[in-house]
Amino acid sequence: MSLKNTAERWGSVSQLLHWTIAVLILAIGTVGLVMGELPRSPKWFWVYTLHKSLGLTVLALVLVRIAWRLYAGACPPVPGTPRWQARLASLTHAAIYGLILAMPLSGWLYDSASGLRPFRWFGLAEVPKLSPPNEALAGAMHSTHELLFWVLLALVAGHAGAALYHHFIRRDATLARMLPRGWIATPTRSPPEDSA
């Protein structure tokens, strides 16, 4: 498999970054949904630190992914994809990238403005504050962080649904080419070809 993207499939670097970020976002979202219910204890601080550390990891990885995409190019839509679907996919991808950047930044700004003690990324390095304590900013960033999560969740659900639609209904290689070769078979398209 090629490291770089080709006209037929996403390269191994793009695949690795895509699925790593997806799994981390799933983990962060799960932790984020349950951590508010935890009592204030040493475990609470550990869970919050884990949530923040994973969030900053995703921020770094999405910057790497954007740089890699600029370098390696994007895999074009599969032949026969209607223009409106290709355009919608491009807009969805751009929105997802923007949200994956904005979410950790809003969380980092919330943490900074809330006046909490500095945290260490996975216990290894102290994370600098982006703002002095500011209650109004902290409240706004907390609300923004939560809103961005739900918007991202809706877009990711649509993105996954579109991949499944392409695999099971349109029966093309859209999903298969974002997975390592041989993980799933590319469906055989039945004539007549759907041009909708």
Rank of each mutant, 00 (worst) to 15 (best):
P118I: 02
A74D: 14
P79Q: 08
P180M: 00
G29M: 09
L61S: 02
W46N: 15
S131L: 06
E8I: 12
L59F: 09
P132Q: 12
F119I: 09
Y71E: 07
L50W: 11
N134H: 13
G32P: 02
V13Q: 06
E135L: 15
I21A: 01
E135C: 09
L116Q: 14
V58D: 06
L130N: 08
A72C: 02
A67T: 04
G107Q: 00
R120W: 11
V58H: 05
I25D: 07
H142Q: 14
V78F: 08
S106N: 04
L33E: 10
V78C: 08
H51C: 03
R40I: 12
S190W: 13
R69K: 08
E135N: 12
Y97R: 02
S41A: 03
L175C: 05
V58Q: 00
A102E: 05
R65K: 00
E8Y: 15
T92M: 09
G115N: 07
Y71S: 08
P82E: 13
S53F: 01
A22F: 05
K129T: 13
L109T: 12
E8K: 14
G115D: 08
W84S: 11
T81H: 10
A86H: 09
A86R: 10
P132C: 09
N5S: 05
M103P: 07
V62R: 07
T20E: 06
P180L: 03
A86I: 09
S53R: 02
V13W: 01
S14D: 07
I100E: 07
H145P: 06
P77F: 06
L153A: 15
K43D: 12
T49G: 15
V31K: 04
G55M: 01
P187R: 06
V156S: 04
W10E: 12
P76F: 12
M141V: 06
W10T: 15
S143W: 15
R65L: 06
A160V: 15
S2C: 10
D111L: 12
Y97P: 01
W121Y: 03
A140W: 07
A94I: 05
L17G: 03
L147V: 13
K129W: 08
A140V: 10
L147F: 08
P79E: 11
W46L: 15
P187C: 07
G158E: 03
A95H: 00
W44C: 10
C75Y: 12
S12A: 14
A95I: 00
R40L: 14
L63V: 10
L38V: 09
L175Q: 10
W150F: 12
L56S: 02
L130D: 00
A72D: 05
I28P: 09
